[in-house]
Design a protein around this nucleic acid. Sequence first.
DNA 1: CCCGTGGATGTGAACCGTCACAATAGTACA
DNA 2: TGTACTATTGTGACGGTTCACATCCACGGG
Lengths: 353, 353
Amino acid sequence: MMPDSQIKQATLRDVAEMARVSYQTVWRVVNEHPNVAVDTRERVLQAVRTLDYRPHRAAQVLTTGRSYILQLVIFEYAYGDPLPAILHWAREFGYTMVVTELKDATSAESVRTLLRETAQMIDGLLMVMPYPHLSYDALAGLCQGRPFVVVNTELGAKMPSVVFDQRYGMRLAVEHLVALGHRRIAEISGPLDNCDARARHDTWIRMAADMAGRCEFDPSLSVAGDFEVGSGYSAAQHLLATGRSFSAVLVGNDLMALGAMRAFDEAGLRIPEDVSIVGYDDAALSAYLSPPLTTVRQEFDTLGRESVEYLVSLIEDRLTPIQQRVLYPELIVRQSTCSRTGEHPQTGELGRR
Amino acid sequence: MMPDSQIKQATLRDVAEMARVSYQTVWRVVNEHPNVAVDTRERVLQAVRTLDYRPHRAAQVLTTGRSYILQLVIFEYAYGDPLPAILHWAREFGYTMVVTELKDATSAESVRTLLRETAQMIDGLLMVMPYPHLSYDALAGLCQGRPFVVVNTELGAKMPSVVFDQRYGMRLAVEHLVALGHRRIAEISGPLDNCDARARHDTWIRMAADMAGRCEFDPSLSVAGDFEVGSGYSAAQHLLATGRSFSAVLVGNDLMALGAMRAFDEAGLRIPEDVSIVGYDDAALSAYLSPPLTTVRQEFDTLGRESVEYLVSLIEDRLTPIQQRVLYPELIVRQSTCSRTGEHPQTGELGRR
DNA sequence: CCCGTGGATGTGAACCGTCACAATAGTACA
DNA sequence: TGTACTATTGTGACGGTTCACATCCACGGG
């Protein structure tokens, strides 16, 4: 059994009674308004302490319309990455965070359902929705005019958003491989309806076209995974099964890179001598893989801070313009990439079933 | 600029006016009470739809005292693991979740601060606090009599809680290694003020004592990490630096196991031939390490479901008894462990700096 | 002595649902 | 025709905070 089931919270009026003043005076003291006599203030504060008075948030929300609660909407993939940073910065800015997961981010209906539940309670929304199926107006409608910031959407999208420049990140990765002499480069991308994955994929194709001769894009050496370890593993196996040769792989994130490394390892290929691998994200574990993974770092802490900061400024100051804040990733070179020596046994000979 | 800044939400009274009935009738329709004439009901529902009426949650909280919001308090370590499951099940049970991180879980003061902010808004708390410094009464006091469930605390703790039996899990791991013939077993534990880490560590010591002769506990081969990859790496290096021989390592979680594997790899030791490794958790990536990691699986989805289910039953039905629900982990044997052949080069010869 | 000024404090209404109770209409049955 | 009862609908107060406004008092200047 629970003990003394509900402890009755003291109210403004309770404190007023105890301090022998009106509730308004108590309110003034609590909200630090001027024009309260020092001895009255003391008496009130005393009462506040003994009764352990705290303003009732729900009542405050009801009258002021402000809850200091934000809602984070995340799509299942995007999990671990930006969440800790967002949580941390929300707290730092004085907000608490409701976290909701969205199963089907592509349908406006599921978003609507999600918002129904909490809508009147929250001051603004942060949406990690890498599936840009909803226009600004659609989102604004769903959010009932509440401020929102989209995290990780298309570069150039006309909405309040904070994004990494995926084209830039991919360029770093490709240039790195090309500089090492790699020509036949395979790709294990994320799901192509994910805008990040798409942007990187498209960038890779465009770069290959632009650098014709120095490297090439082979459609049969481009597989899409789902950002999970297992899909990296099977994608790598699939690449090997094609029998086509490649000396390096661009992988959509570090988790899939880990899976791919395992597959190559099982196939007897050495990394980086036989296959160079570039990951994406720079997860905590990437520095400790064997070999440590060359990857494109996305600074999720910055992403979290920028997103929250932007959202809060939209909430508190209506003058903030709609804009897209762009962050730039960084290439972290470790030991999973090396120059293509050409004399090593390459995939294509070994990889044949 | 944000567009038409705030969209005015329709209230019960607005709907009533439109449907030409009293707000009470609207309320009855919305809350599906009987005794409303069919045509009235239709008229009201029509008005509800055209005005897109939704009850104001804050007002509901104010009058009913129920918010259908739960608060999750997590200590930084315990991150990724139980969170997705808890989120999912909370939603499943009709609750939304406020997620708050706690920097210093050992001080009652920091908990109090955290709760102040949201206290009157939430129906109950879920605390992932593997630092059992607070008694049931202390916690109940902090929670102001609101129901709470502790996730991952000490086995046998007298509070509403859901835990894995860490002793059982560790026993599985140790028995596995002993059955494979390992005698000198090293340990990379989690931080020993963490009750999970502590329970496993203590179990290991007790088992070694009980099985005297068949395996042994060597204090200098027991290092505490912090559950992060990097600490597994340096702990493994430390083990090697002792110059003492060991043929297997019990690691506090899979992430540290990954770090340790890297360290052994760098030192030229093969896994499992030279060192067998047992992890803990069965993280998503563990099956894809090279070699795939033998580990003790904790079913976090079950943990999440049980925790939320328990909390909800405490909230909705005051008769639920205070109890501890115990879940049992499971040994997953993969390829990072093998029988000790004795003829292989063991650590101690190779490991010397 | 009166008025203006400003500090100190109090009153009433509003926010939006909820709930206990009141009121009205309508039917059934004696 | 009246009573009992039900189905349907309405009224009033309340929850705890906020805010605009009202009141009271004292003090200084004229």
